[in-house]
Design a protein around this nucleic acid. Structure first.
Length: 573
RNA sequence: CGGGGUAUAGCGCAGCCUGGUAGCGCAUCUGCUUUGGGAGCAGAGGGUCGUUGGUUCGAAUCCAGCUGCCCCGACCA
């Protein structure tokens, strides 16, 4: 390919209204253009990268025995009503009607459609295990799209769905996918982690996320310093440290007229923050008579809403009581709540249960109790893991302490069990001739997001530095002084052809532009290897070779350049 | 959905306060000269100033509504 024939609208300046580096660079490198909020057109350079990612994913999926299919993005509402998700999904599901006023949605995911396919076409356990996947456009009407294609509304996803007769089979299919995902991210060359995840609204039991580590990530990933244990912060288990001390203080009622927050309390009374307790009132699950539940965590901790919501006594989705409701139940405002004489059930975080001589609101405006102790001053609470992990917490496997880094979620795998197959009666006959509901798994990879994540991880101040596995071209050639020596163009074209014949993709920058402009553009779009053919180097029958990530070019004899390029480590993938 | 910005040529911006010929840089086109880190000179083209309405002899400019886009928050397989 020659740049003169390529639609490559690079931008010299940073676009405004961009926050993350991948978004800036994808716009500057002419990979994408925005068409509306969260909607992007992919330009030729971007599509080349996208196809590279897709092909790696496709090869690794095929290697596991999964079979590629292609489902529609427009899906009839009937299937979603069967699974119950027509009502469960909020406005993120883009709904539309056809000319007959029939309801459809743009698919945010394809469990319903694939389950419908399998229940029609698969009847016997002998056809299992089965894994079907597609690489296709998804639509989710995100409340606030941002960061370019990192969180867009329309995006490309590889989604796979496994079908097994038994939980064991499902487990095996899940493991196969997990291993395939590791191969995929290794081949692309990403620094990633597999982490334990919450299975969220999609339902099911086991779940793992794959995160590319990058400061611009939107998720907090918790690792142990001493083992492979890694989890999304939503799911990172926190254990209690230490033993509960025996009471040393008597409980006192202290007037705190203006101390409505933990910080004010700590400052004004010179307290240690780990002696203070936060009380949060949330709606209780339907089977709970009280209507509301008090959740308590230590003053220096934050509530983990996912953990709270997953508790059997707590209403899902987590709903905080309004101030009016709090006053009605507790007879006090939000700044003065506590577990002493509490009219509703109390769930305490594990660490709170270890506290002694602590400080709580008195359930009376303007008053706190100091020196409170469990059992003596208030009922022993129900204990649960309710808080977010923080750096330095002990890992629950005893291997070390927690560290927290930011991650970009590029993959997510779930064991769904029979959630969809039961709801949609997807059965096969087992070896006893009995109807048996299928065990499913689902496995997603954000193809478009991987492109952005790779840039987040591989760039410098001049632009993108593609890993060769997904580079739009592996080699670029810049010519200088072709007016002084016609051999420049001839040799450049010959080198291009010779390298292409060895199976690499070459971009020859033949634009009528200053050399500096072309250097800058080739750096910006991140081609891993650059060859300069100039009237000067040709005087010695040489060309110049430079890798994108290195500063110093080397001179190579013209007749050796092709072989030299073919042996470069940075092009091995 | 709450809060805050913003909208003028492909991109980045000035003009608006104080109403009266729509401007600058980059990009684009033509010609000549240039070619090792975003070249120079000369010329040219390109905008119903987001939209609707109001005030006015006259609106990019003042007023009101609407819309788009961006940021923060809530939300998010």
């Amino acid at each position: 390919m020659r740049t003169s024939q390529l639609l490559l609208p690079t931008l010299r300046e940073d676009p405004i209204d961009t926050v993350v580096v991948s978004h800036k660079l994808m716009l500057r490198a002419g990979m994408i253009r925005q068409i509306a909020s969260g909607l992007y057109t992919w330009l030729p350079l971007g599509v080349r990268v996208l196809r590279k990612v897709e092909n790696i994913v496709r090869e690794e999926m095929n290697r596991t025995g999964a079979q590629e299919i292609l489902m529609t993005s427009v899906q009839p509402s009937e299937l979603w009503e069967e699974s119950g998700r027509w009502n469960q999904f909020g406005p993120e599901l883009l709904r539309l009607q056809d000319r007959h006023n029939r309801n459809f949605c743009l698919g945010p995911t394809h469990e319903e459609v694939v389950t419908d396919l399998v229940r029609r076409e698969v009847n016997s356990y002998k056809q299992l295990p089965l894994n079907l996947y597609q690489i296709q456009t998804k639509f989710r009407d995100e409340v606030r799209p941002r960061f370019g294609v990192m969180r867009s509304r329309e995006f490309i996803m590889k989604d796979a769905y496994s079908f097994d007769l038994s939980p064991d089979g499902m487990e095996r299919s899940y493991q196969n996918m997990s291993e395939a995902y590791c191969r995929i991210f290794n081949r692309i060359g990403l620094n990633y982690r597999a982490v334990i995840a919450d299975s969220g609204a999609i339902g099911g039991t086991g779940s793992q996320e794959f995160h590319v580590l990058a400061d611009s990530g939107e998720d907090d990933i918790v690792f142990s310093t001493g083992s492979d244990l890694a989890a999304n912060i939503e799911k990172a288990e926190c254990i209690a440290v230490g033993e509960r001390g025996s009471p040393n203080e008597v409980m006192r009622r202290i007037e705190t007229p203006s101390q409505k927050t933990i910080n004010a309390l700590v400052q004004d009374f010179g307290l240690s923050i780990d002696k203070t307790i936060k009380t949060l009132i949330v709606k209780a699950a339907n089977n709970c008579e009280s209507g509301f539940i008090a959740l308590i965590i230590r003053g220096d901790h934050t509530l983990n809403e996912v953990k709270a919501e997953n508790h059997a006594m707590v209403c899902a989705p987590l709903t905080f009581a309004t101030e009016a409701q709090i006053r009605e139940i507790m007879n006090a405002g939000p700044g003065s709540l506590g577990p002493v004489h509490c009219p509703i059930p109390v769930i305490a975080d594990r660490q709170v249960a270890m506290c002694s001589d602590f400080i709580v609101g008195a359930n009376e405006d303007g008053w706190h109790y100091f020196g409170v102790n469990w059992g003596r001053d208030c009922n022993a609470p129900i204990i649960a893991d309710l808080r977010n992990a923080i750096e330095g917490d002990l890992a629950p496997d005893g291997s070390g302490t927690y560290q927290i880094r930011r991650g970009i979620e590029v993959g997510h795998i779930f064991q769904l069990g029979r959630k969809y197959s039961d709801a949609m009666t997807a059965n096969v006959l087992d070896d006893n001739g009995k109807q048996s509901s299928l065990y499913m798994g689902c496995y997603g990879i954000g193809i478009t997001r991987i492109v952005a994540a790779a840039i987040e991880q591989c760039h410098d101040d001049r632009g993108i530095c593609w890993p060769a596995s997904i580079a739009p071209f592996q080699v670029c050639i810049i010519t200088i002084g072709s007016n002084k020596n016609p051999e420049v163009d001839i040799e450049a074209a010959r080198i291009k052809q010779d390298i292409e014949s060895k199976g690499l993709e070459v971009l020859l920058d033949d634009r009528i532009l200053s050399a500096g402009g072309r250097f800058a553009d080739m750096d910006l779009i991140g081609i891993p290897v650059r060859i300069v053919v100039s009237h000067k180097t040709l005087e010695n029958n040489e060309v110049e070779l430079k890798q994108r990530t290195e500063e110093i070019p080397v001179r190579i004899l013209l007749k050796e350049i092709v072989d030299k390029v073919m042996t470069l480590e940075c092009l091995k993938f």
